[in-house]
Computed example of a mutant assay.
Amino acid sequence: MLAAASGLLLVSPGPALAAPAANVSHDQLPTMSAEPDGVQAPFAELADANTGAVRWSRQPNTRAPMGSITKVMTALVVLESGDLDRAITVPPGIIAYDRKYDGSTAGLVPGEVLTARQLLYAMMLPSGCDAAYTLAESYGPGQAGFIAEMNATAARLGLSNTHFTDPSGLPAPNGYSTYSTPADLVKLGMRAMTLPIFRDIVRSQTYHQPAGPANRDHVWRTTNLLLRDYPGTLGIKTGSTDTAGTCLLFEATRAGQPLIGVVLHSSPTSDAAAATDARHMLDWGFGPLLSLIPLP
């Protein structure tokens, strides 16, 4: 069950991100509102990605399902374990797993052999639940072992309101038992984005895996609409289930200032709604000088 809704938390946006250009007077700059307008998500947070200082939040410590944002933790466990060039055979179990939950897939076929690095692209871009299952099976070893490591990593990172029961974020049959909070997910995103390989993966719009002796040809495309539509976007991950609604963990930068944020349940079904919420938050966070700051 969701925790009781807490009040709105507003945190001062702090100093301006940049000084006005010499030929621009303060009278020409729009006034910055006290909070971002038009954000539909009931659970959200925006923070400075360098320091973690919170700029704005809404129910930051309320537990909620987050769908495939869970895969950020799955990727983190794999990356911290290392051996990304190990060859992994896609197991038969992906078929029943995907059918049981109607999960999104990367089009993997049992018996294909891919490296862990390739499977990370398959998991993070098209949100392949088949890839998440395959990685968990190999690195656990087995699903239970891997999920235990996910929860141990959450505890180590101080994510006290986060719990995992699945490597993809798919719900339990009678509800959900994989959950987190906006505050915890921002911390998780900040940790993952310190890893160069992770950053390279989540900022990619497409990844082509050519056919090889033991694998099919694959083209994986990101589900993150911000990467296409919002200049300066660096990632990170979408999420969507019937219970979680549409969710997005995101990071973008302007003039060397990165902001990281998350929205949970922006809409029951529309990925565009989560991206729109994120754009509202980023535009507000980058402030009235947004149009004057050169793109990265």
Rank of each mutant, 00 (worst) to 15 (best):
M1C: 12
M1P: 15
S6Q: 12
S6H: 05
L9G: 06
L10M: 10
L10F: 11
V11Q: 14
S12D: 15
G14M: 10
A16I: 13
A16K: 11
A21H: 13
A21T: 14
A22E: 15
S25T: 12
H26A: 15
P30M: 00
M32C: 01
A34I: 13
E35A: 15
E35W: 10
P36M: 08
P36V: 12
G38V: 00
V39F: 10
F43Y: 15
A44W: 02
E45F: 01
E45L: 13
A49R: 00
N50D: 11
N50M: 03
T51E: 01
A53Y: 11
V54D: 06
R55G: 05
Q59D: 14
P60I: 10
R63E: 14
R63F: 08
A64Y: 11
S68G: 05
T74W: 03
V77F: 05
D85G: 14
D85R: 13
A87P: 07
A87Y: 03
A87S: 15
P91M: 07
A96F: 09
D98E: 15
K100P: 00
T105E: 03
L108N: 01
V109M: 14
E112W: 03
L114F: 04
A116E: 08
R117W: 12
A122F: 02
M124S: 02
L125G: 05
P126K: 02
S127N: 02
S127G: 00
A132F: 04
L135M: 09
L135H: 08
E137Y: 02
E137V: 09
E137I: 07
P141L: 08
Q143Y: 09
G145H: 04
I147P: 06
M150T: 09
N151D: 14
N151F: 13
T153L: 15
A155T: 13
R156F: 07
R156H: 15
R156N: 11
S160P: 07
N161I: 02
H163S: 07
A172P: 12
G175E: 02
T178H: 03
T181F: 01
A183L: 08
M190I: 09
A192T: 06
T194A: 14
T194E: 15
P196H: 06
P196G: 08
I197M: 10
V202F: 02
R203A: 10
R203I: 04
S204F: 06
Q205M: 13
T206F: 10
Y207T: 03
H208P: 02
Q209L: 15
P210V: 07
P213Q: 12
A214Q: 15
R216H: 14
H218L: 09
R221W: 02
T222F: 10
N224W: 01
L226M: 06
D229Q: 06
G235M: 01
T238K: 05
T238R: 06
D242M: 12
D242K: 14
T243E: 13
A244S: 14
G245T: 08
C247S: 11
L248V: 13
A255Q: 12
G256R: 07
G256Q: 07
P258R: 04
P258N: 09
L259E: 05
L259P: 02
V263D: 04
S266Y: 03
S266N: 05
P268R: 09
P268L: 00
A274D: 06
A275L: 01
T276G: 13
T276L: 14
T276E: 15
M281Q: 04
W284P: 06
W284Y: 11
L289A: 11
L289M: 14
L289N: 12
L290Q: 09
P294E: 13
